[in-house]
Design a protein around this nucleic acid. Structure first.
Lengths: 189, 189
DNA sequence: CAAGTGATCCTAATGGCGTTAGGTTTTGTC
DNA sequence: GACAAAACCTAACGCCATTAGGATCACTTG
């Protein structure tokens, strides 16, 4: 019997695969064990328990998003950067809806997850700096941006938009709304 | 041995109490049974299974929200109605964060849950009518509003706003942002 | 008022999952 | 080539959802 050669990272990979294929509720240690060709208790060598695996998944997803969004806004400024940020956000959610849905189930109180979320926040704040926003103004603006992007993403990932109206159009209007609010609050340019 | 005198509604009541006290993940048939003073299998007389109980909970919460938000916007119009809608939305979430978090776990595909969500949508559309928005314009505007209110609510309910900046201020800015966007898209007044 | 009927509730039992305990085998190292 | 650490296994426990089938309560009907 050869070894599976697992590692914490590989377990998280398998967990993401399970989530992508069968949804966040289907993430069980049994499912991950089956996928990695290992008995369930063997997973405890690599992760403390199911709760930690969920935590690691959330961390991975947030990190992945921060990377992609960071790359998307690179070399762009102001309105263009905001649009790029929003489009990259939605693109990630559409590519991995179940993965995105798996994150909010996590308590943000956890330090590791919080750190990953902070990485995403960093990208948002970087974009806002282009509007001359710093300090408290930037925080409030970042919350507007996050709430808006996350709200749309969460609803879309959950199939919350029933009607046939074009979602791209709705999203563009969301972006315009946020951009206008950033211009209004922004320091003089 | 006297009877517990349960009913589907009473079971949902107990489920909500469990959720309020111990979070959405703590909603188990065993917990509800313990709270209602009944053996677990007895619950199957009133609800088909755990999935249906979750569905009923989501339905109840959405209906409850539609009622409160509907009451809040009554007698108000335009910007004032939007502000009232947003404040009532957030007030509900702050009063019952766990309850709010229990909803999105549900598949919106379910007809009964969808109907309850439609009730909420009705309130939003009624407010938008005050801006002369109808048809597709109203749908897009309603999505902006829902995404924004839900996004902020979801993040706040999950403790997603870590920083100490005042959340009331952030929320007021969110409301201003949405109001401005509604004015912009609105038909001539 | 007594008998019957249907619904409510129970205990018993099954299977899946998370988790712990303790043994075995593989892998890398001296 | 032996030894030590780690990866992996089987066995076992408890909790939960769910089903099956029996007992008991409450209401209706003759």
């Amino acid at each position: 019997m050869p070894r599976a050669g697992l590692s914490p990272g590989a377990v998280v990979d398998a967990a993401l695969a399970v989530i992508d294929e069968r949804g966040p509720e289907a993430l069980t240690l049994a499912a991950v064990a089956a996928r990695t060709g290992v008995a369930t208790p063997s997973l405890y060598v690599h992760v403390r328990n199911l709760a930690e695996l969920r935590r690691l998944v959330a961390q991975r997803v947030l990190t992945e998003m921060a990377e992609r969004l960071g790359a998307a806004v690179m070399g762009r400024g102001r309105d263009e950067a905001v649009a790029a940020l929003f489009h990259a956000w939605r693109a990630y959610v559409l590519a991995h809806p179940a993965r995105y849905a798996a994150v909010p189930a996590q308590p943000r109180t956890d330090p590791e997850v919080a750190a990953a979320a902070a990485g995403l926040m960093e990208v948002v704040l970087a974009v806002l700096r282009g509007y001359g926003l710093t300090g408290s103004d930037a925080i409030h603006a970042a919350r507007r941006l996050r709430a808006t992007a996350h709200g749309f993403a969460a609803l879309e990932a959950a199939g919350g938009f029933g009607l046939p109206e074009d979602l791209d159009t709705s999203y563009q209007q969301v972006i315009d709304m946020v951009v206008a609010s950033l211009r209004g609050t922004a320091a003089a340019t």
